[in-house]
């Protein structure tokens, strides 16, 4: 089937089998490898993207279901050459180590601070509870998201 997905503002048209997952479409058809695969059971959130603005696990959406929809990946966070506040805050607060969960964490964080400009520690921990990190113990991720909320315009 031919599908067109708007990825980071650009229309991506590819002919794919219905069984192709959105994460696979993004990584191997569009060629954006910032979104990762960490499990087979929709638990880890390494594949998180924004689907029409909301964070979802792109391993649990068929690419054909994204036809006509807008997807934002980590590569789309930066705008006009400027880092998104969440990106700057993750670096500043040491919110990442191996970097594998980081794109998903940042996208969830970006969606959260869009809706809640002063998230509490519990707000952040609840929001990122669909994303696993094996390195950081989440402490600095929480701080980074709060810092981004405080510094961002969103």
């Amino acid at each position: 089937m031919e599908v067109t997905v708007t990825v980071n503002g650009s229309d991506q048209t590819h002919d794919i089998e219905p069984r192709v997952l959105l994460i696979d479409f993004i990584r191997t058809r569009v060629g954006l490898t910032g979104s990762h695969i960490g499990c087979d059971t929709s638990n880890c959130g390494a594949c998180t993207v924004l689907f029409d603005g909301k964070p979802v696990k792109s391993c649990t959406v068929l690419a054909v279901q994204a036809d006509g929809h807008a997807v934002t990946t980590v590569e789309g966070l930066k705008s006009n050459g400027t880092l998104h506040p969440i990106q700057a805050a993750f670096k500043e607060e040491h919110g990442l180590q191996c970097g594998f969960c980081t794109p998903g964490m940042m996208l969830v964080g970006a969606a959260l601070i869009e809706a809640n400009t002063e998230p509490s520690v519990d707000d952040v921990r609840w929001a990122i509870s669909g994303n696993l990190c094996r390195c950081t113990g989440y402490m600095n991720i929480v701080t980074a998201i709060q810092t981004a909320a405080a510094t961002g315009e969103g």
Binding site: V74, L83, K91, G99
Partner: peptide
């Protein structure tokens, strides 16, 4: 190393 990771360029 963060420069590449936060932009999905790992």
């Amino acid at each position: 190393e963060d420069a590449r990771f936060i932009e999905g360029q790992g």
